[in-house]
Amino acid sequence: MGEINRELRRNKDLLWLLTKKEITLKYKRTVLGILWSLLNPILLAIILFIAFKIFMRIKMENYTFFFLSALFPWNWFSASVTMSTGTLIGNVSLIKKIRFPRHFLVLATILAQLFNLILALPIIIGLSYFYGNGLGMSWFLIVPILVAIQFMVTTGICVAISMINAYFRDMEYIIGVVVSMLFWMTPIVYPLNMVPEAYRIYLILNPLTHLITAWRDLFMSNTINWGSIGISFGSSLIFFFLGLLVFQRLGKRLDEVL
């Protein structure tokens, strides 16, 4: 019993240290260091405000808030997916010489990106006071739920593609295209009802549409959209288990291709 407990604690320590490593390495030799994670979303918000509010003068109310409320959660997803394609093939010596749960490398990549989303939350909160209803009690319940759901979808996708990429290195380039396609197939830049009805079904079939909608409804109007949350949760389970299955199956012969 004590041994199992110790092993659990060790795995927790390992995941935490790998995540911390990802975060510290990113800014290791910079002057501002971790401040960049806070500065980045602020600068992005200012740029978008100038582009949409001053230059383009988009008619939609609070467009900057509308865009950012979806963009920050999206960035967590897209950065995780893009970075995890190289995670396994980039850690060959670790994988070949030390025995440890390999999926931790991918999880650490995702968690390090989650850190960026968390540091972007103050901007969202600021915008919600400026444009909307301000921070509601519902946030404290729903933000963790949505983080958990998105973590599961992202994990499923990331572990699968990091593994497939070891066998089939074209994956990295395919993913680059697919991620940017998904960006436009998800209502981030525009609201769903702006898409012509004939094509709307394609966006609705995309599970990320529901997840992003749930985030936006929460951030912009403190609304708990249980419908979107439910669909997101269901699809996240499918992605999660399918991804782990692929990872486990292909993992048996990983040494032959690295």
């Binding site: 060790r10 320590d13 240290l17 510290t24 010596s93 670790l94 030390i98």
Partner: peptide, 22 residues
């Protein structure tokens, strides 16, 4: 095998010690 050149000696000890089973 688990060392990273940009981390300090101390940081590398920590991460490698855990990788090796502590």
């Amino acid at each position: 095998a688990g060392f990273h050149p940009d981390l300090t000696g101390r940081e590398n000890i920590l991460i490698n010690g855990v990788l090796l089973g502590l």
